[in-house]
Amino acid sequence: MIYKALKQRHITVSLWAAGVLLELPADMERYVHHLTQPLRSPPSVVREVEQADDMQGGRVPAYTAPPVAPPSDGPPVVTVDHLYSECGGDTQGHEGDWPWRCERCGQLVADLLTTLRVGCHDHAPHGQGGLTFNDVFVLGNMKCDTDTTDDHPYSPAAFIRGLESRGVPTRKVDRHDTAAVRQLAEVTSAPTGEERAAGRGRDEAVTVANENIVWGLERPIVVYLDNVWDSLCCADPTGRVRSMSRSTAQVIWVKYVKR
Score class of each variant (00 low, 15 high):
residue 114 T to W: 04
residue 157 A to G: 06
residue 203 D to C: 04
residue 97 D to G: 12
residue 41 S to E: 06
residue 188 T to F: 07
residue 250 Q to G: 05
residue 54 D to V: 13
residue 221 I to H: 00
residue 59 R to S: 14
residue 9 R to N: 10
residue 248 T to Q: 09
residue 178 T to D: 11
residue 28 M to C: 11
residue 92 Q to L: 14
residue 72 S to Q: 11
residue 79 T to R: 06
residue 140 G to I: 02
residue 140 G to L: 02
residue 49 V to R: 05
residue 60 V to R: 02
residue 63 Y to I: 10
residue 4 K to I: 07
residue 44 S to T: 13
residue 197 A to R: 01
residue 39 L to Q: 12
residue 103 E to R: 14
residue 54 D to R: 14
residue 231 S to A: 15
residue 185 A to R: 14
residue 259 R to Q: 08
residue 207 T to E: 01
residue 232 L to V: 12
residue 158 A to I: 07
residue 255 K to R: 15
residue 8 Q to E: 14
residue 210 N to R: 05
residue 237 P to D: 09
residue 205 A to R: 04
residue 253 W to N: 03
residue 34 H to W: 15
residue 54 D to C: 11
residue 236 D to T: 13
residue 93 G to W: 05
residue 107 Q to W: 00
residue 149 T to G: 10
residue 44 S to A: 15
residue 169 P to H: 11
residue 135 D to T: 07
residue 39 L to H: 11
residue 81 D to W: 04
residue 141 N to L: 09
residue 98 W to Q: 07
residue 30 R to W: 13
residue 90 D to F: 09
residue 175 R to N: 10
residue 125 P to Y: 06
residue 135 D to G: 01
residue 149 T to V: 09
residue 210 N to L: 04
residue 8 Q to Y: 04
residue 183 Q to N: 12
residue 192 T to Y: 06
residue 244 M to K: 05
residue 205 A to Q: 00
residue 17 A to L: 15
residue 209 A to Y: 02
residue 157 A to K: 02
residue 109 V to K: 02
residue 243 S to D: 08
residue 45 V to F: 04
residue 253 W to H: 12
residue 203 D to G: 08
residue 78 V to P: 00
residue 226 D to N: 15
residue 112 L to A: 06
residue 135 D to E: 05
residue 211 E to T: 07
residue 40 R to L: 13
residue 254 V to N: 01
residue 218 E to C: 06
residue 22 L to W: 14
residue 182 R to A: 14
residue 256 Y to M: 03
residue 219 R to Q: 09
residue 149 T to N: 07
residue 202 R to N: 07
residue 66 P to R: 10
residue 24 L to A: 15
residue 206 V to G: 00
residue 255 K to C: 04
residue 62 A to K: 15
residue 102 C to R: 03
residue 127 G to P: 07
residue 110 A to E: 02
residue 184 L to P: 02
residue 129 G to Q: 08
residue 4 K to A: 15
residue 9 R to H: 11
residue 79 T to Y: 03
residue 190 A to K: 01
residue 257 V to S: 00
residue 116 L to H: 08
residue 154 Y to L: 11
residue 124 A to P: 09
residue 79 T to K: 06
residue 90 D to Q: 13
residue 234 C to N: 12
residue 102 C to A: 04
residue 16 W to P: 00
residue 173 V to N: 07
residue 83 L to S: 04
residue 141 N to D: 14
residue 113 L to P: 00
residue 79 T to F: 03
residue 156 P to F: 01
residue 55 M to S: 10
residue 54 D to M: 14
residue 60 V to G: 03
residue 1 M to D: 13
residue 181 V to N: 02
residue 194 E to Q: 09
residue 220 P to F: 06
residue 14 S to G: 09
residue 205 A to Y: 00
residue 36 T to F: 09
residue 33 H to G: 07
residue 121 H to G: 05
residue 162 G to N: 05
residue 5 A to L: 12
residue 136 V to I: 07
residue 155 S to F: 02
residue 194 E to R: 08
residue 7 K to H: 12
residue 84 Y to L: 01
residue 133 F to H: 15
residue 170 T to P: 03
residue 60 V to H: 08
residue 54 D to Y: 13
residue 52 A to K: 04
residue 2 I to A: 09
residue 143 K to C: 07
residue 172 K to M: 13
residue 209 A to P: 00
residue 67 P to C: 03
residue 6 L to F: 11
